[in-house]
Design a protein around this nucleic acid. Structure first.
Lengths: 115, 115
DNA sequence: TTGACTAGTAGGGAATCGCCTACCTAATGT
DNA sequence: ACATTAGGTAGGCGATTCCCTACTAGTCAA
């Protein structure tokens, strides 16, 4: 389902690194598919700049566009976010252990090259 | 537990946007706390550059340092990753619905300003 | 067909990123 | 005290980011 591997991962994390783009995802999630103008109304930014953000999101696979007359309706595509969740999985035990207060054990576990 | 709000979120996502920094997190997760030199050995990069990456991770709260003699041992701090998982939560139903093949319903749901 | 409207592209500029080579600071060991 | 080791800081440099103002390409309506 994902042949690109690390390059795709890189694009997704890079796309999420910008607050405007995360806000676009939130809008699409909360209000459903939206045309560019409707999205642009919620930002203090010119429309072409938003278009570039949408391009980044598109290339990360986080949104798709559907043409409808002269509008382009963008829709959230959450699959890459599922990949992010998969990426998080192996870290989960770390914050759980920490919450249970036994994270200090890890400090005395696997550690190389002591002086 | 997190008073900073969106600025902290921004630092975390920005920190994760770099492959070297994600690799540092993976190393700390798989091998436990490590000194800088041990980490640096795994990258084709000079040590000062890695130091800067560690600074970014530190300021995002993703690692902590403990001085031990002349070494500085870095440890994974997974709490901000728990925040990322929380951020992902509201999107979860989107990729689940899509997998069940009924994501198309969303296209005909909440949509404003038709021509 | 002409005009208006939606949205993407081109190109430019300031700021930030990510790397580098010095250099500085602190701890250790002789 | 002095040299060595570990690692952070300063400053520079090319690439990238993120915004802007034109401009271009489709689509709809008179």
């Amino acid at each position: 389902m994902n042949g690109t591997g690390t390059a795709a991962e890189d694009r997704v994390f890079a796309a999420l690194a910008n607050a405007t783009r995360r806000e676009v995802l939130r809008l699409l999630r909360e209000r459903g598919p939206q045309a560019v103008q409707a999205l642009a109304d919620h930002f203090d930014m010119r429309r072409p700049s938003l278009s570039e953000h949408l391009k980044v999101l598109r290339e990360a696979g986080l949104v798709s566009e559907r043409r409808s007359g002269r509008q382009r309706v963008y829709r959230l595509e959450a699959a890459p976010l599922a990949d992010v969740q998969d990426w998080l999985h192996p870290y989960e035990r770390f914050w759980r252990e920490r919450l249970k207060g036994l994270g200090d054990l890890l400090d005395r576990m696997p550690d190389d090259d002591q002086p």
